[in-house]
Write a protein that binds this DNA or RNA. Structure first.
Lengths: 322, 322
DNA sequence: TTGAAAGCGCTAACAG
DNA sequence: CTGTTAGCGCTTTCAA
């Protein structure tokens, strides 16, 4: 390991002078500046940011807890977020809560130990207030993403409720009479506690439409696909909305196998494969999301800030109707 | 911020005693142990791992540089890697090189500054030996993933050469007479410098088969899709192999648009959408990969270790042949 | 069994 | 303009 002491010795200055020279701070003579930079480059010196942070109490790392590693939506936003953080001189540490409170707490502990400046997480339950307050006691900002569970936290969510309402209205306007929504079932959370709620938007669209409808709440992980397929076969919908890509794929696979036809389909979370299959989807707004995250990282507000991000419905010629 | 001093004061012991008690190391009386733990839990104390690492010189973080954030393959392996690291008490920092040497160097600098124990990266070029040696000078192990560019580094690669040979042999055995391989064009690397090389396996399979063939090297990012489609239209293949999902999607989109038929298709990097579309793919072995990464992180070898991971061809009823 | 002291690598305050 | 000193939070001798 090469330290600033090594650089200082080689340049015949004190460590503090070397430090100031390298950071271009304060008054440094041209000669000192040059000799320090020369020494640093010859030695291959790179400042230990761990020690810097300890000293300056200025923690330039952000923690990101992904709740569902199978959900590609997370990864589609990750590189934008990382790029934005780099532009702001920050690092990104990621962790996975696997949709359960115990892992979520472990993630928190690990990120708190690393003294990240901010933790972004998608709450898997409403019982982890303890560790959240420990984070805050340690000067860490905590922001909940995509699920508004803890009312006292900064919150950034996609407007899934309105997205789902749009999707249902569109299906109705296309002539559907029997709509099925595959919403999310949370293992450690009452559905009623979770905002935004796709079912709410769904019901608003259906109110007074005269159409039949059904809602299945389906787990994000460790699910039994039979529950899904039986419900489809029993209800016989002519339009289906799925809350995630994964559920969407299960639905599509089932419909294809059974050679169903004429069932219209919209899923949350657009991607290139949906585009290729000319399937309709609800597209999240990554730009606004990244921007909100940047703001959350860079500003320190008092009152909890709530951000609601609008989303688009992308209609495509539905392959299943061909 | 809550420090061990706070805990020590509340428990009426010295910081060093508190430290030993919390880490269950050395001789500690039952009473001290209990009072220290009580104080820590009441205060919500979590040890600052930054300071711990500075002291113990034991860096429990791994850096991972993703070269292409559009390539979902990276994300499909990330959660397994992260889980494995967690089990071994380590953290994961990710960074993105965006397939260019400048960003790659920036990533290295940032990870070296964080004093990660190991850096995994997919080389985007062969000119960054300088920063790699700086990493090593700072006691950081460097492992190249998926591309064998620097001969003196630990290396973990998928056996794309054999995978491509298998794919080509299979297409030939299915009766194809005109094979097109869409291989990767590297912006900052001569193709000949990159191992494994899909084209090599492709050519081995074709040798003596009497079939016609063509190879197009296509960029991973910022590509012109017209180059791809024109080549397909000009060569009129009856079998296509693509090196990435992204190129694969472009090929499929083109073939669908033009209502081509009877063209067999195999792509690298299997996923659930390919499965749904009943498209054939070459499937990487994530278990072996994760295991190799664990070994690289946990053991310190002298000579550079080279790991070659075998992969499977998954044949599915090709939707385009229906 | 516990505490005092030193020091990991770095920077900020203060003298010079 | 530069060096000395102290200390971030933690652990590790070493002495008590």
């Amino acid at each position: 390991m090469i330290t600033i002491k090594d650089v200082a010795e080689r340049a015949n200055v004190s460590p503090s002078t070397a430090s100031r020279a390298l950071r271009q701070i304060g008054y440094i003579s041209k000669e000192t500046h040059d000799s320090v930079f020369k020494a640093a480059s010859e030695l291959g010196y790179i400042a230990n940011s761990t020690a810097q942070q300890l000293k300056t109490r200025n923690f330039r790392t952000v923690g990101f807890i992904i709740s569902d590693s199978n959900n590609e939506y997370y990864f589609s936003i990750l590189s934008d977020i990382q790029k934005m953080l780099t532009e702001n001189g920050m690092n990104l540490i990621i962790a996975f809560s696997s949709e359960n409170p115990v892992d979520e707490e472990t993630c928190f502990r690990s990120l708190i130990a690393s003294r990240v400046s901010t933790i972004f997480f998608t709450p898997t339950n409403d019982q982890n207030g303890e560790i959240i307050s420990v984070a805050k006691k340690n000067g860490i900002k905590v922001v909940q993403l995509f699920r508004d569970i803890y009312s006292d936290l900064d919150t950034i969510i996609n407007d899934d409720e309105s997205g789902c309402r749009q999707a249902a209205e569109t299906l109705l306007s296309l002539g559907c009479k029997r709509l099925l929504l595959i919403d999310v079932e949370y293992l450690y959370l009452e559905s009623e506690r979770v905002r935004p709620d796709r079912s709410t938007g769904f019901l608003q669209a259906l109110k007074g439409s005269g159409a039949e409808y059904d809602i299945l709440r389906f787990p994000l992980v460790d699910y039994d696909v039979g529950v899904l397929t039986q419900r489809i076969d029993a209800f016989r919908p002519d339009g289906i909305i799925t809350a995630t890509n994964i559920a969407g794929l299960e639905v599509l696979t089932h419909l294809k196998d059974r050679e169903h036809a004429g069932i219209r389909f919209i899923t949350f979370d657009d991607n290139r494969w949906l585009q290729f299959c000319t399937l309709s989807a609800i597209r999240q707004n990554t730009a606004i999301l990244t921007d909100s995250i940047r703001e959350a990282v860079c500003t320190q507000s008092e009152a909890p800030r709530k951000v609601l991000i609008p989303q688009d419905l992308v209609l495509r010629r539905d392959a299943l109707l061909d």
